[in-house]
Amino acid sequence: MTDGLMRVVIGGTWRLDDPLPTIAVKGDRVRIESSDLTFFDSSLPAWIFGNFKNVRQLDLGSLPPRLQSLVRIAEKASVNDHLGEVPGVLAQFGSWGMESAGSWGRSFNHIGNTFMGFARVLVGRAKVNWMDFALQLQTAGVDALPIVALLGFLTGLIMAYVGLIQLRQVGATVYVANLVSLAMTREMGALMTGVIACGRTSTAFASQLGSMNVSQETDALRALGLNPVEYLAVPRILAVTLMVPLLATFATFIGVFGGMIVACAGDLSIEQYLTQAVRAITFKSFLVGFIKSIAFGFIAAWAGCYRGSVAKRSALGVGEAATSAAVLGITLIVVSDAIFAVIFNLFDL
């Protein structure tokens, strides 16, 4: 180093596969010279660019012209297409607030559009893809029967097992039939089916609609004068809203049967169990479960369609949409279940 000028001499062979030397840059004036430089690939200009890009005065005059050009190109080429500055913390907080508000706005807009779509279906003015509707009745409904049956059966079975252990202590094992029947009819049948619909159908809808966003198919629908919510979301939501109550009813009966297996393997006869179960299942409790399942079906399908329609246009965005659809759907189902509990209590149902 002389007079504040750092002199760097480079030479030899520079290849991508070879380790690069480390250097401590001192001062803001550097002169790089070459001596016996036999071969170099992009590792050498990358090393010079990386180590000396912040030097105020960099003299490359004595380097081979091709090397000079490769370093200068990288320095000059940093011209970008309208990239903003990194925002401060306050601005980031503001952006987050705006984004959250926008997200709520978009979700309410989507719900509004969905109900408008339903209204237009009722008056016969909607352009709906009825093929999709038929397909979803099959895939979201009939195809879900095995998983709904399995989980419903196991839920009833587990409840009966836990119930038996507790009720045996007070000599009231016969009431295990009431416990299982009432819980399955009012609560678990609808809740389990709603959760299954979120995991199975919501994510599928989010992926389908998200992929259509990526490939600009939704834009093409708009260009054709079709409303994507009406054309794509309404048939899906309608199909799931119709199928989930049926599936929930099926899950309820399968759950009661699951409970019977455990109860009858222990302390009860089949006649005792069925008599108690029929006494426990009233029209009111069936209605409560049925109303809930309609709402849960709507929520599960809407969450999938909504997250898919606002998915980012990338493979990552589609994956995020599927995940967030399941999370949103399950969260809304549990929240609405709590609200239903309060409302039904108020109306003595």
Partner: peptide, 30 residues
């Protein structure tokens, strides 16, 4: 390449600078 992370980072930054994307390195494609 069997290079350490520091060198790989330096090379990637250089290649992106070469195509004029020095200030967009941490952006996602979307």
């Amino acid at each position: 390449l069997k290079a350490p992370q520091r060198e790989i980072r330096q090379l990637a930054e250089y290649k992106l600078a070469l195509v004029g994307l020095a200030d967009a390195m941490d952006k996602l494609p979307s």
